[in-house]
Nucleic acid binder design. Sequence first.
RNA 1: GCCCGCGUGGCGGAAUAGGCAGACGCACAGGACUUAAAAUCCUGAGAUGUAAAAGUCGUAUCGGUUCAAGUCCGAUCGCGGGCACCA
Length: 920
Amino acid sequence: MDDIVKTSGYNLSAITEFENKWRKYWYRNNIFRSQTPKPGEKSFYCLDMFPYPSGAGLHVGHPVGYIASDIYCRYKRMHGFNVLHPMGWDAFGLPAERYAVKMHEHPSVVTKVNAENYKRQMQLIGLSYDWDREIYTTDPEYYKWTQYIFLKLYNAWFDEEQQKARPIEELPIPESVRLQGAKAVSDYKNTKRLVYYDYSEVNWCPALNTVVANEEVMADGRTEHGYEVVKKAMKQVKMRITAYADRLLQGLEKLDWSESIKEQQRVWIGKTKGVQIVFRGTNGGPDIEVFTTHIETIWGVSFLVIAPDLDIVKDIVTPEQKAEVDEYVKKTALASEKQRKMNTGEKTGAFTGYYVENPLTGDKVPVYVADYVLKDHGTGAVMGVASHDSRDFDFAVAKNLAIIPLFVPKDAEIAKKILAGEMAWEEEGKALPNTNPVYNELQLEGKGLKECAELVGNYVVEHKLGKFITCFKMRDWVFARQRYWGEPIPLINWEDGTTTSVAESELPLTLPVLPDNDYAPAGDGKSALAKATDWVQVTDPVTGMKGERELSTMPQWAGSCWYPLRYMDPKNSDYLVDPAVEDAWGSVDLYIGGTEHATSHLLYSRFWYLALHDLGVIRTEEPFKRLINQGMLTSYAYRSARGVIIPIDEVEQREDGNYYVTAGSEFYVEEDKDVPVTREYAKMSKSLRNVVNPDDVIRDYGADSFRVFLMSMAPVTDGRIWDTKNIGGTVKLLSRIWDIITGGSETGYAETVAEEAENKEVSKQLNILNAKLAEDIERMKYNTAITALNICINNISALKPFSKKTLEELVLMLSPFAPYMADELWQRLGHEGCTYFEKWPALRENVNMIDETINIAVTLNGKKCLNLDIASDLKDDDVKAAVIQALEEKQGAPLTVIKSIVVRDRKSGMVNIVNIVAKR
RNA sequence: GCCCGCGUGGCGGAAUAGGCAGACGCACAGGACUUAAAAUCCUGAGAUGUAAAAGUCGUAUCGGUUCAAGUCCGAUCGCGGGCACCA
């Protein structure tokens, strides 16, 4: 493996030696430590999404983002910025708890072991984290503040008028409530808090014996580990994130995030505007309100559908239909999330026997229950318009209900089908004639969909039949897990049915150690905490009333919602972050991580910041100004003819280009020795035996090569395929630089010349490199930055000897990418300490960047026909004349020029292309 | 089904704002050095064509705008990601 690194003095033993040396130097001297910025000091806050430290350690894919941010930070540092670049551990979570259950050991033990391993690997790579600011979300000194924030939100309500959270004491209590006494007032407050209890259906996972969040349920209706999820009503702690729907949506506009993440959040929030309209009950029965975004189709309503789990169902169902409806309601309630989703397309339902009246036509409309209508969206009731909604169409077909066409498109074939009731039409069309008086009063016939929608909507609102409303798809956040390994929720439920919060002074409310170290859930959906009876049972010292602590813990997202704040002031025991310190750093300037948190962490975190800002707890409103999502790293995986997955390092490529199992491997089978294995690529995973560990790569090639290689493969945001055998090009580049600087000297550096004696071209090339690096690092295109380094080396390597200044500048420009080597060379050049604190080289002045003659392309009538050398200082007219002369010479005939265009490079102003349009 | 993104040599990728497509690297071939190999250095290469040139074709496909299109517009196909009965 190590035969690639064999050139010059840049060989593996030397690399290992100096990398170890500098690693010790950096971390022992704490050179990456940062201090709170002083007034007027330039600062930069760069944050990596902190990892959950799993037992497997880092594979080579994880550091893509870490190295990307590290290069950026080192570059910023060299530009005089005070850089905050911290790292910590999102350490609560299921794997550690499962391990603890199995081993009968407190989960903090394995958590610590795993995190230490991650830290070791990160230091191996040379990441410039300030480890003095390391945090664990599981540390009581940390989760004390998570609980503190929880209490702030619990003791707050959302003022719709002001569109902001306010302390619960400021909640206006209606006179009618006040008259009913203290208990009524308290209950009223509880319905308004940002944190509240709610009996609601949750995703219940029987296998894990816990509740999981919507975003943890995959598209197939299972958890990410494949366990089945069913619906179950439970009393849950929830957070009122929906109150912030509008602000979360609007806030996106100001953020420098990828459009795709913003769009995912927009879709998740799911804002829709429509009309809520009342269908009057018949025979004295209740009215039903529906929400629709297509009020213009109200003329085509042939039925109404309500969600089976709405309370109103039992009030409207007729005696004759009761049996059928009851059975349907029961069946849908039992159906798992998965079954429900599998049913897409096939419509089922039951008739309630009840009728309502269409407010515009007066028609009697039958009411059905069907599970394709969701209780939580709008009013949980929709108007069935079979001809203009594909779901309603399917339902109408299944139940043999009327299909009333209203709009048809120009296309005659389609129009015919719509009129025949053979298909639903959901796009633009013209309104058909109708005998309804209101329809004709509004003169809808012949008008388009949108125009009709406006006319009908306004009519409905003016006549007080309905109102314009806005709906959101987003639901409130179920903020509880029936698990042990999470932050305890600081609430107490008393025997009189009231709930109080733990006093701030009692925080942190720490997790109790459980008897016999038994961390398995207590069953019945209760977390393992139920077993800590001493901890759970509380008695009010004043009244003697008994109570029980909330048994569920916070979801894993809790700690990560606010962690950027804590890094600024990690040891503050008086407050989560000193406001002055928060002001000094501001919010995160650059946040780097994967896309998998698009609608979870990144949304929850924004929600907490907004609420905390409203309540005056923190100063900033948005956590992350710029977000970069690194691409996924995949790796090849090999499968033998027998279907066995072969580990990546036990496969070799033969001359025919195919891959075979290496002789001597335990997977080697004599009969198959000439049967190629198939190659696929996939995310690194144990089961595919394609995991590459950075420890191994660094052992074989050094950390600098690992860093540069990983960054050279593709832009940070793109996916990439790891293939160790391609690392040779990177090693070669670094060794060429090494040779240029050292010149073959054992401990010193190459022979140098005075600056004036150096080849003029060198200055030009260094300036080109410098400008290119600045540009590429800023937009995080490290692959082209490394290319620029390569080009520069190619262009100057034959121009030695160099000045010492040149050698120094090269080392400094290399430093963010390959810091170990840069520091070693820096020392060889006679400097004390490391490059981390050095200034990035300035562009050299008085360097002639322009050659005397330049080569230009000439196109005739849009087609390239020749290249021409011209003096670089010619004016456009002279260029044209020269070009036309050259063309005429080539053709041997005069040219009738119609038009001529001289294109100059935007930056240099040099002629690039000349295009001549001539008569043929 | 809907939304978003992307299709460039054998491969990873470059072309930042419509201006010489294929930079740079990997892999490959030839040469130098070497007893030999490795390493290193030099040279070559989109396809087609030619003795070599010239020429022709070429950024998924078809069409359009433009003096000029990988880049802009329209349609089609393919791949990747997200959402998924949200009325």
